[in-house]
């Protein structure tokens, strides 16, 4: 119920952001609201209409997360599955985008030195990129949207959005004419690394549609960042894209995992001494049990 209200609120916010000029082609009749001076009857009518529209929008855009958030314990697997489901307008394709909190990446580019050995020849830091990014769709994105539309809506299977968002800082600034291609090369290389670890993923035809219901399952890697993840759900029909809903879920450590991370970060001195004492005690105990020493 609370989530439904939040989505309805999201719909209302979208209406406000559109300066009372909104249209919903999937919701039956095309509705257009234009700005007028507020008067009581008009305002009442407007509120009633907004409630009517947002309740319809809320039904179409409700998101459900199963589980509600991801919790990492000491026994968490390499991948946790999160199911995102909701309803979409009849006949529309659905695209789900999941974006983690941003992260900075320090990168090296290798080149040949002395003619035979591979060593770092340039360095860069890339900022403002999500540590995890996933794009799941119910069909082929190329069949739904033109490359230009994909780019405009941030729904490119070749991560155009990432290339646009990335901020790069070279340790030794390259020549002006080389900067753009070098930036592209760094980002492409980083995406390849992150794809290999499952941190960046594009899964076309992975969103299941059943009538007006859709379901997307995301495999969330354990080394993905902790924090608040944004989820964007889009409905695509006849080349038009509508943001159905925007919601978020949390990824956090719990139990002993959370306690250890907290101690290592906030009580580092005590944690370090404790780690050393545990090791000495364990070593002496083993030494006494086996009555012989190991080597080093």
């Amino acid at each position: 119920m609370e989530r439904k209200l939040r989505i309805a609120d999201c719909g209302l916010r979208n209406l406000k952001e559109n300066s009372f000029h909104a249209s919903w082609s999937f919701l039956g009749a095309r509705r257009v609201i234009t700005r007028r001076p507020f008067k009581l009857p008009a305002l009442t009518g407007l509120i009633l209409m907004v409630l009517l529209v947002t309740s319809q929008f809320g039904q179409a855009g409700t998101l459900r997360f199963e589980p509600a958030g991801l919790e990492r314990t000491l026994f968490s697997n390499r991948f946790q599955t999160l199911t995102i489901s909701g309803s979409a307008p009849e006949g529309a394709q659905v695209v789900v985008k999941i974006v983690s909190p941003p992260k900075a990446f320090n990168l090296n580019k290798s080149g040949k030195g002395l003619g035979f050995i591979w060593l770092p020849i340039s360095h860069a830091e890339i900022k403002k990129l999500p540590g995890m990014y996933a794009l799941l769709s119910s069909g082929k994105l190329s069949g739904m949207l033109s490359p230009e539309q994909q780019k405009t809506n941030g729904l490119s299977p070749d991560y155009q959005e990432i290339y646009q968002k990335a901020e790069i800082h070279f340790k030794s600034p390259p020549k002006e004419e080389e900067a753009a291609s070098l930036k592209k090369e760094y980002i492409a290389g980083l995406i390849k690394i992150l794809e290999q670890g499952g941190l960046y993923q594009v899964q076309e035809e992975a969103v299941q549609l059943s009538g007006v219901q859709f379901t997307a399952r995301i495999k969330h890697p354990a080394d993905a960042p902790l924090g608040e993840y944004q989820v964007f759900c889009y409905a695509v029909k006849e080349g038009k894209t509508d943001l159905l809903a925007q919601d978020k879920f949390q990824v956090k450590q719990i139990g002993l995992a959370e306690w250890l991370t907290h101690q290592a970060g906030s009580n580092a001195v005590i944690y370090g001494i404790l780690a050393a004492l545990i090791a000495v005690a364990a070593g002496l105990l083993v030494g006494m049990v086996f009555k012989k020493g190991g080597g080093h």
Partner: peptide, 14 residues
């Protein structure tokens, strides 16, 4: 840290 554990049993014995 692991070496502390492994070496302390040996150091104790020696």
């Amino acid at each position: 840290n692991q070496i502390v554990a492994a070496a302390s049993s040996g150091a104790y014995a020696h």
